[in-house]
Design a protein around this nucleic acid. Structure first.
Ligand SMILES: [Mn+2]
Ligand SMILES: [Mn+2]
Ligand SMILES: [Zn+2]
Ligand SMILES: [Zn+2]
Lengths: 135, 135
DNA sequence: GTTCTAATTGAAAAAATTCGCAATAGCGAA
DNA sequence: TTCGCTATTGCGAATTTTTTCAATTAGAAC
């Protein structure tokens, strides 16, 4: 059985994700750590973010501009991503709980802890409506 | 105002996605079309799949092995993806409707038409349970 | 502490995806 | 039909991400 090792690189990468608020890219993490770990390689960052995600320590999401990572801990949260303006609205876990619970009752154990729903925010809907009326 | 043009490439790419059941990758589509369109380039395939997704003609998803595309039409459906065995279970649209409706009432217009929820299927849960008991 | 072994690393190469741009070709207007 | 504009194409280069592999090292066993 394979044991996950907590290497210096992995520990540092996790600490960096935890230290930054919000969503960070692999590239950001790499550039943050490179100065203090000159021998760090991009592949190590990619590999570890994936490993940390498997471990459930970070969440992974692509909200349109490539993969971003975020520390897992405290209350989970989710996002409503506007395809019009790019605005990201927070969605509380309690708002998705009933839906997830339904899946659990069905026999599926949900691991998603950072759901992203794409669509249009109210102001972008108004804009679209105005445009339509102008035609 | 920019008009979306229906080029031969775009038409063929859409037809290919529509002609293949289930989820297909950009690479698959490229290799399918290359013989009959020798001058077709990968970038055109990537660009068009993205454009077709914006047009709402295809859905895009990454269920762990890179982006896959699927024709939009008929009843929308969603997926429960098992992180243990990789199995993909279908989830009807009616199962997510109440959740989406709630977001609509909240003022957010949902565009996601192919949701993927990650977790563990019942048989993988049993396996994990047995493993735990063995320790 | 020492030993052993398999997980992990860094570097380079490969693969996947995006970008920049001159040439081409949809399609609306005339 | 023909014309004109500009969205789109194919190509090559750039960027991003994954893979491969020999060298290293975390951590279990002693
Ligand atoms: Mn978040
Ligand atoms: Mn599907
Ligand atoms: Zn918006
Ligand atoms: Zn499973």
């Amino acid at each position: 059985m394979s044991t996950m090792r907590m290497t210096i690189q992995r520990r540092k990468i996790l600490a960096t994700v935890q230290g930054l608020p919000g969503h960070v890219s692999a590239e950001t993490i790499y550039h943050r750590l490179k100065p203090e770990m000159p021998e760090l390689s991009p592949s190590t960052v990619y590999r570890n973010l994936k490993a940390l995600a498997d471990m459930g320590r970070v969440s992974v999401t692509d909200m349109g501009q490539g993969w971003v990572f975020e520390a897992v801990g405290g209350t989970p949260h989710h996002h409503l991503v506007c395809l019009g303006c790019g605005e990201v609205e927070d969605l509380s876990d309690s708002a998705v709980r009933p839906f997830f619970d339904q899946l659990e009752r069905r026999g599926f154990h949900v691991a998603t802890n950072h759901l992203c729903i794409y669509g249009y925010c109210s102001s972008c809907q108004e804009k679209a409506g105005a445009q339509e009326a102008a035609r």
